[in-house]
């Protein structure tokens, strides 16, 4: 995996007046329920460690109440942690003074919000240039920068509209353009697409992936939707009750769920869109020379199956750097796509 852009170390968050003292009790083994019952403090995050890849999309997935929105707000310190470290590049975010923190938020990290967080009294162009205005850029620079991103997210012609005049999907494009306009390397997206209709959501995921191919930002994406997590995430961390239960690539999580909780999630997933051909292929050998069509390494099973049926063959060879490295059959592909029954998942 590429170098680390954001490193979260031993992060704890406890909500209450005496949170720092409570961290010690949690470290000593006190449970969330005991903490609440005996001390009236709420355990938000417990011993979080994540290395987020530079220029990649790190997804943090969890259901409501899992602490995922709390976690993302620690990265730009909208929420103060009770204990731990957050290192971005070579700087510990928690050591920053109020002024350094403002500069950090202005230039290096930006954010997209679930309910958009747009300024209702400002037009689209003024919303998109908000970050630039806060930096103190001139009116001309603000306008040029804003227009460029408005066009890039496909909102040209709506510059002078107010947010209330736009649909949800369009409002979130404004939110995305506003976040991109500051040219920050890190983009935090807090359930950015969760408030949108399913079709618009898929659309926005596509826009994000297209932009990412070109921009190579470090994106931290929060979601409660596993399909979204698998589509977007280079790496996924799954959060439950304030603790990380599993981290890895989408494929690792689908194939080797760490516990029942995660297997119950991944059972509903379209595995053909997650698992890649090299995961299920057999090595080539003299005894069984590769045959059939060629598919590049990294192809997802669904795509491999489609190509095989189009070519009307049941075999394919997996190609890396122009050379065959393995072979798969339609039967293997189908078996891997089919959802395993629960006992298989538990054995894995």
């Amino acid at each position: 995996m590429a170098e680390t852009a954001i490193s979260v170390r031993n992060l704890y968050k406890i909500f209450g007046d005496d949170d720092r003292a409570m961290v010690e009790k949690v470290k000593a083994g006190m449970s969330k329920q005991e903490l609440l019952a005996e001390h009236g403090h709420v355990l938000g995050l417990k011993d979080i460690n994540i290395d987020m890849p530079a220029a990649g999309i790190q997804v943090v997935m969890g259901l409501s109440g899992s602490g995922k929105s709390t976690l993302i707000r620690h990265l730009n310190r909208l929420i103060e942690p009770s204990a731990g470290e957050i290192v971005v590049g070579s700087d510990n975010v928690l050591d920053m003074s109020a002024k350094q923190l403002r500069e950090f938020r202005r230039h290096r990290i930006s954010m997209v919000f679930q309910r958009f967080g747009l300024l209702p009294h400002k037009t689209v162009i003024d919303n998109v240039s908000y970050g630039l205005a806060v930096m103190g850029k001139t009116k001309d620079e603000q306008r040029t920068g804003a227009l460029r991103w408005i066009e890039r997210v496909g909102l040209s012609g709506y510059e002078e509209n107010y947010p209330a005049q736009l649909s949800g999907g369009m409002q979130q494009r404004v939110g995305l353009a506003r976040a991109l306009a500051t040219d920050a390397d890190i983009l935090l997206m807090d359930e950015a697409f969760s408030a949108l209709d399913p079709l618009i959501r898929t659309d926005m995921q596509g826009i994000l992936l297209d932009l990412q191919k070109e921009l190579h930002k470090t994106i931290v994406f929060i979601t409660h939707d596993l399909d979204e997590a698998l589509r977007l995430g280079d790496r996924i961390a799954i959060l439950r009750d304030g603790e990380i239960v599993q981290q890895g690539t989408g494929q690792e999580i689908v194939l080797k769920p760490a516990d029942d909780y995660i297997s119950s999630f991944v059972r509903e997933v379209n595995r053909g869109r997650v698992i890649k051909v090299e995961t299920v292929m057999d090595p080539v050998s003299d005894a069984s020379p590769a045959q059939g069509i060629e598919v590049p390494e990294g192809t997802i099973l669904e795509e491999a199956a489609r190509q095989m049926s189009e070519a009307d063959v049941v075999n394919a060879q997996v190609i890396r750097d122009g050379r065959p490295v393995g072979q798969i059959t339609m039967r293997q592909v189908m078996a891997a796509i089919a959802t395993p029954v629960l006992k298989d998942a538990m054995a894995a």
Partner: peptide
């Protein structure tokens, strides 16, 4: 949330 957005962009 609007206020949080303003904070997230480093507003004084």
């Amino acid at each position: 949330e609007v206020l949080e957005a303003a904070n997230a962009f480093g507003s004084s």
